[in-house]
């Protein structure tokens, strides 16, 4: 319908990260439990637009999705002098916590996908008491590499084309064409070397094998959901990770790949609605909360 305005509101917040002010772009909708959503490597918060406009979820949740620095509309900080972007476990963790503090969020739920799923595990290891619940999509403590990230940023290969072509295989064949194209579009728009720099965290710095056993799901519930068509973070990677975490919830999502929230929002909703319902019910005495169709 021409003229329809979506309920999403986008604003910038100044967040101090690593001693420097970053201008972070975030979008939000809804009222209630803060739900902070983390995009995948090399993409941005547009991946969450369908969740952000879900009327039922927005009744119980303040749904928030921000662009990581260097991604989407969160520019590199003013002090950046052009050096290679490289995300580390410590920097990623600090960024999320600083963003939550800057917005004064009280015990938010954090849901992240891919690198966002991996960092959620690190939040569960080191900062569980700060969060109401943690949700990792396409999350594992480690997964075997399947390509050399050096191809992602070199002058004789188009970065946008190769990034999108690589991740295109991680989308399930059942996902609608328009959603597939939109998911890949974000990869075609990423800054040079940003996807590669995110994967430094994923491939090199963020190996959590041997650490996840320390997660206490009594302090903070942990939900892990992985798409059956994700051959990067394979279902067995998630199951192996969860096997060493007592109380972790694991769901394998059918007909979904590595980008559930953007490649097939309707299918993803079937799986995330019960999770968000459970968290909402646990957070309130109201029986109406979390009763999603």
């Amino acid at each position: 319908m021409s003229g329809y305005i979506e309920p999403i509101i986008g604003r910038y917040i100044h967040v101090e990260i690593g001693g420097e002010t970053h201008r972070i772009y975030f979008e939000e909708n809804g009222k209630g439990i803060p739900l902070v959503c983390l995009h995948t490597a090399g993409s941005d918060n547009r991946q969450w637009r369908h969740l952000l406009t879900d009327e039922e979820f927005a009744r119980d949740y303040r749904i928030i999705a921000f662009d990581m620095p260097f991604h989407g509309k969160s520019n590199p900080p003013a002090g950046w002098s052009g050096e290679e972007y490289q995300l580390t476990t410590a920097r990623y963790t600090e960024t999320i916590r600083a963003f939550c503090r800057a917005l004064k969020l009280e015990k938010p739920v954090v849901m992240g996908c891919s690198i966002g799923g991996r960092i959620v595990l690190n939040l569960a290891i080191d900062h569980a008491a700060e969060f109401r619940a943690l949700i990792g999509l396409e999350a594992a403590d480690f997964q075997a590499p399947w390509y050399d990230t050096a191809w992602l940023n070199r002058p004789d290969v188009h970065g946008g084309e190769v990034c999108a072509a690589l991740v295109s295989g991680l989308i399930a064949p059942q996902s609608p064409d328009a959603a597939r194209r939109e998911t890949l579009w974000a990869y075609k728009q990423g800054g040079p070397g940003v996807f590669k720099g995110d994967l430094y965290f994923y491939r090199v710095d963020g190996d959590l094998r041997g650490r996840v056993a320390g997660i206490d799901t009594k302090v903070c519930p942990l939900y892990l959901l992985t798409g059956e068509y994700d051959f990067s973070c394979m279902p067995e990677d998630t199951r192996r990770t969860a096997a060493s975490i007592p109380g972790a919830s694991v769901t394998i999502m059918e007909e979904v790949g590595h980008f559930p929230m953007s490649e097939n929002p309707a299918q993803f909703r079937r799986y995330i609605a019960p999770v968000l319902g459970e968290i909402a019910r646990a957070s309130s005495l109201s029986t109406k909360q979390g009763a999603y169709a």
């Binding site: 295989g169 064949p173 068509y229 051959f231």
Partner: peptide
Amino acid sequence: PRPGWHDLLA
């Protein structure tokens, strides 16, 4: 195609 058989790099 079935999961894991749907992409050249899979």
